[in-house]
Amino acid sequence: MDRDTDIGGLQHRFPVTSHSAIVAARSDDQQVRQRAFSAIVASYWKPAYKYIRFKWQASNEDAKDLTQGFFAAAIEKNYFAGYDSAKASFQTFLRTCLDRFVANQKKAEQRKKRGGGADLFSLDFSSAEDELALYGPTSADSPADYFRKEWVRSLFTLAIGTLSQQYDDSGRSVYFKLFELYDLRDDEMEPKVSYASLANQFGLDTTSVTNYLAAARRDFRKVVLEKLHELTATEEEFRTEARALLGVEISEIPLR
């Protein structure tokens, strides 16, 4: 058993193969840094965009520019190199950087000066707007709570995408299909499905459906933890986030 890459239990541990993008963002290697920024942007752009819309009451056009501008500036000025895990979680650090950036931008009214439209990333803002319309902040949400909530939504969405990709790559797309139909189904819009009906639909027996679904859920958990691992800077932060997000204690095995 390779204890360097395993977390979890004795038999089916959750191998964490990802490396911390937060750590890699400080690398001297341009390519490593680029990959790390991509991972950070992928999981944080939507929460950042929605947060700007909510906290700063920015129009969607302004929020788009500010989101693009923030991540462009983060890369250009290497914001993330200044992160100190002893002071706060990366999520809090990024939110603070974002606040500072937006405040400065608003003050200097530099949006026009920046030229607008010179987008560095290809981000699907319309999906973020749709989500904002459907699952916008409630009156009970503080900006920080809302940012975290949206970060969890982003994390789970990315994890589902990765899970689908992994099953496709390994020729086990039926696992994801079952997971999608049973666990990702919209309870309010779609009729409830049973294990028996799924077995019938896919030409399996009920036991296989049970086993495939259990495997998919296990793998989903694994991917979520991998993503979380990627987006935290230290073991301590990873453990704290895993506990807060899933209520699980990660064993004391070195993960990186």
């Binding site: 459907l134 995408g161 990702l184 309870d187």
Partner: peptide, 12 residues
């Protein structure tokens, strides 16, 4: 992929 509702996130 469709958006995840708050309820679905809790389920996941």
């Amino acid at each position: 992929m469709r958006s995840l509702s708050d309820k679905k996130i809790e389920q996941l």
